[in-house]
């Protein structure tokens, strides 16, 4: 029983992170139909920048919370610029190219970013300095930390903010209109370029925050960390129905929980034949099964072919 609660707690924490990253994928996909492969790398850069800021300010005598907030702010800013630049330099010139072309570009950008990060931060694991005094709370035999609480709280805050932005503001309305039909939206006076750039910028900001969360949760970072994280988050977005914001959030949370439960119980289920290092396969197995029965994801609307 305590394993169950413990894994649920871990799953929700992980899921909150996946959900934030998934939002970046789903926003871009919803508007221009591109799998932005480099998004995972943006998240990684976010973690790395936050790390650099925090480490260089750690000895300055500033209060740790302020240092943490600065790290978060700087990394968010850097990633927003990075996301904007990615769209402007790499993707915008290819908007009318064959479908696979921007995808290859995205893969290329992902390789570039990874290796730039490796040149800057080295090829070894980096220890993320703990800024918050970790406190451990007990819940029916399971435990959780204040770091986990802040992650979930912050993620929830971000999601509420995003929903407000998309449904209550002018730019949000423009985004929804563009996602429905770019041509008509542009006829109605929506600046498509601006909307697309905004999707990248907002997605990257959320990604940077998620990156900082991952860093402070696992307390390590690595130049290749963005890849798996991005892949899982994209899976989460597809799981929820890609292009659907609520779907990405639910998909992320669900994936986090499934993974945590899977890792906790796979040994028991298979008579110790498969161990917890198979954690990474759950995401994909669940994805394949879901798509078999719900081809548009759990919350995606079924869009039929129009004759």
């Amino acid at each position: 029983m305590d394993t169950l609660i413990q894994q649920l707690i871990n799953g929700v924490t992980l899921g909150a992170v996946y959900a934030l990253v998934a939002l970046g994928y789903t926003m871009v996909y919803g508007i221009i139909g591109l799998i932005n492969f480099a998004h995972g790398e943006v998240v990684m850069i976010g973690t790395m920048v936050a790390f650099t800021v925090i480490v260089s300010l750690a000895g300055s005598g500033m209060p740790p919370l302020l240092v943490l907030a600065l790290g978060l702010a700087v990394s968010t800013l850097v990633c927003m610029v990075l996301g904007w630049a990615l769209e402007r330099v790499a993707y915008r010139p290819l908007r009318h190219a064959p479908r696979l072309t921007p995808l290859i570009t995205a893969i290329g950008m992902s390789i570039v970013l990874q290796n730039v990060a490796m040149i800057i931060w080295g090829r070894n694991y980096i220890t993320f300095p703990p800024m918050i005094n970790k406190q451990i709370y007990d819940l029916g035999g399971a435990s959780f930390t204040n770091v986990q609480v802040s992650i979930v709280f912050l993620a929830a805050l971000m999601m509420i903010g995003l929903i407000y932005l998309v449904h209550r503001t002018r730019i949000g309305m423009a985004m929804r209109a563009t996602a429905q039909n770019p041509q008509v939206a542009s006829l109605m006076g929506v600046d498509i370029n601006r909307v697309i750039a905004m999707a990248f910028v907002i997605g990257s900001a959320l990604g940077a925050i998620a990156g900082c969360m991952v860093g402070s949760y696992y307390e390590i970072a690595h130049y290749q960390m963005g890849f798996m994280l991005g892949l899982k988050a994209f899976t989460a977005a597809v799981l929820g129905g890609i292009g659907n914001l609520a779907g990405a959030m639910a998909g992320g949370l669900l994936l986090g929980i499934i993974e945590a439960l899977g890792a906790g119980y796979i040994g028991d289920l298979t008579g110790d034949f498969l161990g917890s290092h198979y954690q990474d396969i759950f995401a994909f197995i669940v994805l394949i099964i879901v798509l078999m029965f719900r081809p548009s994801g759990l919350f995606g609307e079924r869009t039929g072919d129009r004759a």
Partner: peptide, 30 residues
């Protein structure tokens, strides 16, 4: 792998095949 997924939209196939590649690699590793 293809029979259940080929009726899906192209991008979904991309992610499913990608996931399959990772599954195979994880199994080889473990």
């Amino acid at each position: 792998l293809g029979a259940p997924t080929l009726k899906l939209r192209g991008d979904y196939l991309a992610i499913v095949t990608l996931g399959f590649g990772e599954i195979i690699r994880i199994f080889m590793n473990n």
